[in-house]
Amino acid sequence: MTQEILDLTAPTLDRSFLVALAPDEKLRTCIQCGTCTASCASAYAMEYTPRQMWRMVQLGLKEEVLNSKTFWLCSTCYSCSVRCPRGIPLLETIGALKRMAIAERIGPYKESINFYRAFMDVVRRYGRVDELEFMTRYFLSTNIFSIIGYVPLGLAMLMHGKVTIKGGLRMAPRLVGISGAGRLDALFRKVEELEAEQ
């Protein structure tokens, strides 16, 4: 593997990146031991390993980190967090990275962003998640052809009674938006207000 050369004198370095992500600044104490990378189930598929990414955050390489797929490949298994010898809450910082990438609409990984968005839309509207509706919203928002790969799974789920035709028909009017106010609208709005106050 060729090593990418990062320009640490570039004017694009954002020194406030780390504080914005992790206000307690514990991340500054990272000793680059690599326990996070060794513990990470999906590190092999990342362009920057977790250890490399944390160093890049320390250095302020915001563009490079937010445009990478590293943090979208986190499956939230918490292995890095429980093993970090510095006790840095790494997974919480991954959460902050995802929030920042979504808020700033950065990152080429639309499927992950659409997945999270479709999920929270369903929670806000109904309070509970109907998995069939959520998956349909997700596939509609991403690449409608990607649904083809999941057709055998959908049929198998149907066969085992895990999704129902009735559920599918019930969902149809909701997908085109004929349905009243969301079940958790008020709570979501209140949380938005409280966060804006900060």
């Binding site: 959460g95 995802k98 929030r99 929670v123 309070g127 998640v129 709570l187 979501f188 949380v191």
Partner: peptide
């Protein structure tokens, strides 16, 4: 009257929401 806990998804929207949903 329970509702969704936010799964691993709520915290990608808002940290506070990821606590408020299960707290409810």
């Amino acid at each position: 009257d329970w509702t969704c806990c936010g799964a691993s998804t709520a915290e990608t929207v808002s940290f506070l929401l990821s606590l408020v949903l299960p707290a409810r």
